[in-house]
Design a protein around this nucleic acid. Structure first.
Lengths: 193, 193
DNA sequence: TTGATTTATTGAACTTGTTCAATTTTTTTG
DNA sequence: CAAAAAAATTGAACAAGTTCAATAAATCAA
């Protein structure tokens, strides 16, 4: 059941079987039904999670009541509010299950413990944070330089499997546009084929 | 001369005097005159840098020839293309000195060495990457939810000292808007006072 | 210090994206 | 399966931001 997690860790660093076992023991499985929350705004994020089943959206609600989706997380992705988790402050984000889902959670204390016991874990999370940072940097550049139309087509191309599991409302909230405008983009694209 | 660097490191982790000395020895000073480059698109980024004097801009040029500024770095800030540096691939970014500047550079091999010799260095860079990631995440949300007007005013409020050292062209390239539009925003704000 | 270059401002026409409201289509749930 | 809820589409009027071109102001280099 923790096979996917072990596989994911192995793709970043190499651990002995014992080290892997010991580290993975620190994770606890949690089932979250569709439309339920792993985290709500105002709560302190007490976990770092690894999705083994389902799909989550991580979003923020701005002052005008609009939703901005920071990212989605499907199987084999990590999920947390890194700001709230590391600084132990109230989160500004919601993490909601879009499908019936399962996550493996590790608490902050267990993670800190792992850092001290096994420096390779520190390396693991440094590498992971670096990778997500690089991805976000690319998205930042794209958002600054591309039109909504281009960003939509890039999204479909980059995440074809994810795309099929999302509604247009969710994709629009990720792209930072209204769903009506996304609808018009889709129409324009369809007419070109 | 490396006082600022030591101070910066101490704000993230605690090292003994010896550890600090040994680590800081790995950095070499480099002077970069205004309008010169620390890194150009296509080159592999061989360093991680710490700015001790001056001001840099880190930017990308898109397919239409437009500049997007990812971030600025002044004294006490770190600077690198983390994607190019960690994955040893050609950079998509330019790093250019906006003022006569000085940076302390550490090479990839020396940094890797430090990681192995002193796990606390791994922690240092994990913490730093996390912090820049959190900052970028906030900027991402702001870019998705706020108008250019708001983003400009936020920028001035957040980085008042940096703001004074930049041209409006540079600020516009950071905010992701044309400098003409920034000019109009400035006029509107001025008329309200 | 003057000429050259870069930066900033402005206006007009245009494009991209939003808002609101009405309608249709799809999905969910009892 | 039927009713209700959620998602998607469409059009019209509007707002945000761009583009281009002309001019002014500031800075740089000889």
């Amino acid at each position: 059941m923790k096979e996917l997690l072990k596989q994911n860790i192995s793709s970043h660093i190499s651990l002995s079987e014992n080290e892997m076992e010991d580290f993975c023991k620190l994770f606890q499985s949690k089932i979250i039904q569709k439309k339920n929350f792993l985290l709500r705004e105002g709560e302190v994020c007490k976990f770092e999670g690894f999705v083994t089943k389902g799909l989550f959206r991580v979003y923020h609600i701005d002052n005008n009541g609009f939703e901005q989706i920071l990212y989605f997380a499907i199987e084999n992705w990590w999920i947390t509010d890194i700001d709230s988790f590391t600084n132990e402050k109230p989160s500004q984000l919601f993490i909601e299950a879009i499908e019936d889902s399962e996550v493996l959670l590790i608490s902050k204390t267990d993670k800190e413990l792992a850092y001290t016991n096994l420096p390779k874990i520190e390396k693991l999370f440094r590498i992971m944070t670096q990778k997500t940072h690089v991805a976000l940097q690319r998205r930042m550049i794209d958002n600054l330089s591309k039109t909504a139309d281009q960003r939509y087509q890039d999204f479909i191309e980059k995440y074809p499997q994810l795309f099929q599991r999302l509604t247009n409302l969710q994709i629009a909230a990720y792209l930072g546009i209204s769903h009506e405008f996304l609808s018009k983009i889709r129409k324009k694209i369809a007419s070109k084929i």
